[in-house]
Design a protein around this nucleic acid. Structure first.
Length: 283
DNA sequence: ATCCAGGATCTCC
DNA sequence: GGAGATCATGGA
């Protein structure tokens, strides 16, 4: 499966911008291997030509259209988004120019809940390793040494002690709590759930280990609530340094500013800014 | 060795 | 409701 004219898409920028944890770079060109929705996908990009394939070779157009079109958010006009959030904003223009191929992946809410609980006060390589441990121990084998992300039922077999052994650290009990809440029907895990974002956010935050920032990541990456604006150390840093002239600023004021400036597109803006601040050459 | 990481919670005021 | 300590783990 090949796309010959991919626009505003770069597989490396999209996977490496901190929204996704189940992937590996497979060589020194723009080539990756990723796991999502119980599938294993290879992606190799050269300019606007992007090749997608399964190891067993069976990736037809129907399969691509039903899973990966949505996953990579290919139906959305990112040129339009970029134009809207960067008009009269030279900072955003720089951030977008740094990585214009970022797209917000449409990932599984349940996987995002567990992944971003693990992300709290943690580093991306370690987050990836812990998730890998959990998948290998509790997820189903999907060929070779690869494992699907465990379902809530599968993960419910894990005790806090079991999870601690997989290097979750102090987050073990939070994962147990989240799993119980999902199985009890207290937290919806469907991407198309109709709950208003503020109510869904409140529901997420009733789970131990999910505060404002983690909730906003889950909303943005898992539930397609693109107005969400997660504020972590990097986003706070970029906002204070570049938008507030070095003045320290509480998250509530940053949220208000982001909503005013970026509106319903705040989530996209956040992702460009996060990646820009984290990887640009510091002066 | 001390600090820090896509933070959250608990305590204490 | 805001400041401060604490929470595992591992890399710099």
């Amino acid at each position: 499966m090949i796309i010959h004219n991919a626009v505003n898409f770069d597989i490396g920028q999209t996977l490496e911008c901190g929204q996704c944890f189940r992937f590996e770079k497979t060589d020194d060109t723009n080539s990756y291997f990723l796991l999502a929705y119980g599938k294993k996908l290879n992606v190799s990009q050269n300019g606007d030509k992007v090749k997608f394939w399964y190891d067993d070779g069976k990736l037809d157009k129907k399969e691509f259209d039903t899973i990966w079109m949505q996953y990579f958010d290919f139906e959305r006009d990112y040129a339009d988004i970029q134009a809207k959030i960067s008009s009269n904003d030279t900072i955003m223009q720089h951030a977008i120019a740094f990585a214009p191929g970022i797209r917000i992946l449409q990932q599984d809410p349940w996987e995002m809940i567990i992944s971003f609980i693990i992300s709290a006060n943690n580093r991306i390589p370690q987050i990836k390793q812990v998730i890998k441990n959990i998948c290998k121990t509790y997820g189903g084998n999907i060929g070779g040494e690869h494992y699907a992300f465990p379902t809530p039922q599968e993960l419910a077999k894990a005790t806090a002690e079991d999870l601690r052994a997989l290097k979750t650290g102090f987050r073990d009990k939070y994962i147990v709590d989240a799993t119980k809440r999902v199985l009890a029907g207290e937290m919806p895990v469907e991407r198309n759930c109709k709950l208003p974002t503020n109510e869904l956010r409140k529901t997420l935050m009733e789970t131990k280990g999910i505060g404002e920032k983690v909730a906003d990541c889950i909303l943005l990456f898992g539930y397609g609530r693109w107005e969400s604006f997660p504020i972590d150390v990097w986003v706070r840093r970029v906002m204070e340094q570049l938008y507030f002239n070095g003045e320290s600023m509480p998250p509530a004021k940053i949220h208000a500013f982001a909503k005013e400036r970026f509106g319903e597109l705040a989530g996209f803006a956040q992702q460009y800014l996060f990646h820009y601040m984290r990887l640009k050459k510091t002066t």
